[in-house]
Design a protein around this nucleic acid. Structure first.
Lengths: 337, 337
DNA sequence: GTTGCGAATGTGAACGGTCACATTTGGGAG
DNA sequence: CTCCCAAATGTGACCGTTCACATTCGCAAC
């Protein structure tokens, strides 16, 4: 049953067992060419009996397709990216592609570059860049990347290639909601400043305020973590020149809510807080967080769709940004009268 | 400068450019054998000039090593697994291995099996199983896996192979803390029942109570999500036969805290709540959550260490479980007198 | 009974590396 | 100057698959 040698059975072993040539086995494997049903069955039987698995490396070598999609991600442990990666994986696997994930620890150029290099060295067939830091794009520009790639969350910097949630629009949604509740002094706590998303959300914040004839306050910059939201909260709450806060993401909003409690500020009576992302936990914050929902699964799915289309030499696909949605909960309310 | 053809330069192109044989180039690449410094420089120069990258597939084919570690993960978007995966990736990359992540959507046997199959078909060199569901182990048993593998969080089912945080010990830590605060009626809200971790934590809960001469209450089963913690809270809080709750993870604890607010139960005055995991957000819950910290990064790091040692045919390594740590915050207090 | 022709199957080469072994080179000892 | 031997370099085969092309088969038409 087992081969005499310890090595795994190859296509020729199967051919021998089935009494056909290796080419016929290959044809059965790939469904190419015509094979008589009786022959196919015989081959399939031999494959099954020997426990044969096609060797991916040999295939990759001769077809020069690794059937691998590379993902470059920063902060891949965050809810958003992690969810997207999972969706990407699912979609990729469905199309017979595997995923090679590389995460860059810090945002510095060298780390980005080496991560990208590492992926390229594996000759991935396509690339998803989920590391929306400004520097990533410099690196991408420098290494001339020949494989199809999609950058998530970064339409503006790389139009045509990017696929993104409309961050600016989402931010405007949040701010408009606050304006409609009667707020005129709205503070923005932004995410890490080298992130494209942080910048886009800040732009949306300013744009919406200005459109309403209001004045943006100086933005405070956090680092996406709850801890930074908390620290910033403790700092800005004592001198309260605002009646509402728009946080760059839900984690920072959570930290900020914590700071409100510690500072004796009651949300939403005295202060409204709005987040961004809508993590599964956000509904359970105290109080339930009003936020902007991004469909991270859809993002991942669409990214793969885009790449596969390009790999198939295919048709132009839908590059339209994904529209985020405002979720109103208890953390926002009418301005205290 | 570029090759005449569109194809990427190969080792023979480099050899020609450097005026040496392809074998010499190979030696330079792998640091094997002796190469005169002058020759090495010439080769390195040619590599650089041509922009040559070794072809991973060809290498894999001839060495029958894919330099890939496969990760089978369920719920890879959760904080814990996501963090571990990131740590695994970092450690693997440091050793020249890439990561191929496959997540299983549902816990059913077929899904597990196909995920495992998919990884095996890529001929990964080693396997990390981060999908601590009971069924996974049946599947692993059936497909006879020949590569080294480590299962995380499942020491009991597979002693010797597993590497894990001492879940039972962690749970006992949490429960002991509550007992020391004077609680005698402690409820456990467990995670999804087919998860090894959920079972281990429940065992720890019972063991510690019994050791203290107390009686475990019937366990309520959730699904790890904040939503389930909330729903369970609303259900059990009205008939309150307990003064403390030990939740299977921090997300469920968050939902439970939410239910406490909605039910008018003040934590920790009337009720103590303890979680498990210590996510970066847990300190900012209302009130800050007492919980058991797992070092997810250490888990990932150690997993890779173990695998690499085995791949190098190496020495037995440290299989000792990682010890979790109790983090006391504001959600737990002395029993109301 | 040939011939013709599409369907089915087989053969040689190539993909880009590494391995095992063969060959050349350089320089010190005699 | 010759010899020797280790260091440095080169050559052929092979890994497991697909591709391009050649060959055989079977059957209908004449």
């Amino acid at each position: 049953m087992d081969a005499e040698k310890g090595r795994a059975p190859n296509i020729r072993d199967v051919a021998r067992a089935a009494g056909v040539s290796y080419q016929t086995v290959s044809r059965v494997l790939n469904g190419s060419g015509a094979v008589r049903p009786a022959t196919r069955d015989r081959v399939l039987g031999a494959i099954d009996e020997l426990g044969y698995r096609p060797n991916a490396a040999a295939r990759a070598l001769v077809t020069s397709q690794s059937k691998t999609i590379g993902v470059l991600s920063s902060q891949s442990a965050l809810y958003g990216p992690a969810t997207s990666i999972q969706a990407i994986e699912l979609a990729a696997r469905g199309a017979g592609y595997r995923l090679s994930v590389t995460s860059i620890d810090s945002g510095d150029y060298e780390s980005i570059r080496s991560g990208l290099d590492f992926l390229l060295a594996q000759s991935v067939d396509a690339l998803v860049v989920l590391a929306p830091q400004v520097r990533v794009f410099e690196a991408i520009g420098e290494l001339s990347i020949t494989v199809p790639f999609v950058t998530l969350e970064a339409t503006e910097l790389d139009p045509g290639r990017g696929l993104s949630v409309d961050q600016v629009g989402g931010a405007r949604l949040a701010v408009r909601h606050l304006i409609e509740l009667g707020h005129v002094s709205i503070l923005h706590i932004a995410g890490a400043s080298d992130w494209i998303e942080a910048q886009a959300r800040q732009r949306g914040y300013s744009a919406e305020l200005i459109a309403a004839g209001l004045v943006p306050l100086p933005t405070v910059v956090g680092d996406w973590t709850a801890g930074s939201g908390y620290r910033i909260g403790l700092e800005v709450l004592p001198r309260r020149e605002f009646t509402a806060v728009f946080c760059g993401n839900d984690q920072m909003a959570l930290g900020f809510l914590h700071a409100c409690r510690d500072s004796g500020v009651v949300v939403p009576r005295e202060l409204s807080v709005v987040g961004f992302d809508d993590t599964p936990e956000s509904a359970h914050f105290a109080p339930g967080l009003t936020t902007v929902r991004q469909d991270f699964v859809e993002i991942g799915r669409r990214a793969v769709e885009l790449l596969l289309a390009e790999l198939r030499g295919g048709t132009e696909l839908d590059h339209a940004p994904i529209v985020p949605e405002l979720i109103v909960r208890q953390s926002s309310g009418r301005v205290a009268g």
